[in-house]
């Protein structure tokens, strides 16, 4: 069996439910592993046999294009059999509960389940009901750990480090799992974090989470190395949280004029999908300072690293 040659596990977790709970060493180990997979993914032959014979189920209770396909590619490149299950939340409400679904899937004996769910804590709940490893692909407004890892990898490859960088996260912080995971991860690696957005979209108590809070994006950008823009959901644009997308773009949308307040070599990121003209201008999104496409590439590598790290802890017989 290949188990004899597998290196001893350096990632002491059965699941990846969030960045919260990972040590700095855990994070760095995942990023280092992901570097190898970036190289692998650029070859013609992209396949490894690490997960050969393993079954991976992508269980998505919320629609997702990029995250689901990224996990699917990652699993396939590692040799796993990958099954996608998209469960529209409406059909779940008709009967089967999350726990029933978990029990059903568990009986099919998967090795890894990748879960996205619209409720915070749902992935945590599911992980207690199954025997396999669980990866959180986004739970409500709680965490999206692989997004934070891929953001960190993108930053490290472009800046050579994360420690000491000034990073601005701008937009709908309150409803963003990406922001939550990034705030924990980037601080664990020693970055200086600033968050910026309208007060209605900042979570209560954010000032006690170790970040500097700004209302004015131009002020937040002064001295910034990295600018992360967040997506503003359509239902929050029209009077509920901000008066209009037009007013939002005026004050919190990133265009070339505002970006000029950041350092000359500042880089721009966005977890996608973008609302061009709402939180970011096309000029900036497609410009020389944008890392947005590279983030997508890093996503596959990071997810391969996560699954390999978890697979090392799976039983082999």
């Amino acid at each position: 069996m290949s188990a004899a040659t597998a290196p001893p596990s350096s990632f002491p977790h059965r699941h990846l439910l969030g960045i919260d709970g990972l040590s700095r060493a855990d994070i760095v180990a995942l990023l280092d592993m992901a570097e190898d997979y970036v190289a692998l993914s650029r070859q013609v032959e992209k396949k490894k046999a690490t997960l050969r014979g393993r079954t991976q189920i992508n269980l998505f209770f919320e629609p997702s294009t990029r995250t689901q396909s990224s996990f699917e590619l990652a699993g396939k490149r590692l040799g796993a059999d990958v099954m996608n299950m998209s469960v529209a939340s409406s059909s779940v409400k008709k009967g089967e509960t999350l726990i029933d679904t978990a029990a059903t899937l568990n009986a099919m004996r998967p090795d890894i389940i990748v879960v996205r769910h619209h409720a915070a804590g749902a992935v945590h709940l599911l992980s207690r009901k199954v025997d396999c490893s669980v990866v959180n692909a986004g739970d409500g407004q709680h965490e999206h750990p692989t997004q934070a890892l891929l953001d960190a990898l993108t930053i490290r490859r472009n800046k050579g480090r994360i420690e000491g960088l000034t990073i601005v996260i701008c937009g709908d912080i309150m409803h963003s799992r990406v922001a939550r995971s990034n705030m924990i991860l980037l601080q664990a690696l020693g970055a200086r974090l600033r968050v910026c957005g309208p007060r209605t979209l900042l979570p209560v108590g954010v000032e006690r989470m170790g970040v500097e809070v700004f209302g004015d994006l131009k002020k937040a950008l002064v001295g910034a190395d990295i600018v992360m823009m967040l997506r503003l959901q359509r239902e929050r644009m029209n009077g509920g949280f901000v008066p209009s997308s037009k007013e939002y773009f005026r004050y919190w949308g990133l265009d070339a004029e505002k970006l000029a307040f950041a350092k000359a070599d500042a880089l721009v990121m966005h977890p996608g999908p973008m609302n061009r003209g709402v939180e970011i201008s096309s000029e900036v999104a497609d410009g020389a300072q944008s890392l947005i496409r590279e983030q997508v590439e890093m996503g596959v590598a990071v997810r391969m690293a996560v699954m390999e790290a978890l697979a090392r802890n799976l039983p082999n017989h």
Binding site: D139, G140, H142, R177, R180, G205, M209
Partner: peptide, 13 residues
């Protein structure tokens, strides 16, 4: 309850 703990859990307060 609204507050820091609730925000960390990603729940509405």
């Amino acid at each position: 309850n609204e507050g820091e703990f609730c925000s960390r859990l990603g729940l509405a307060g």
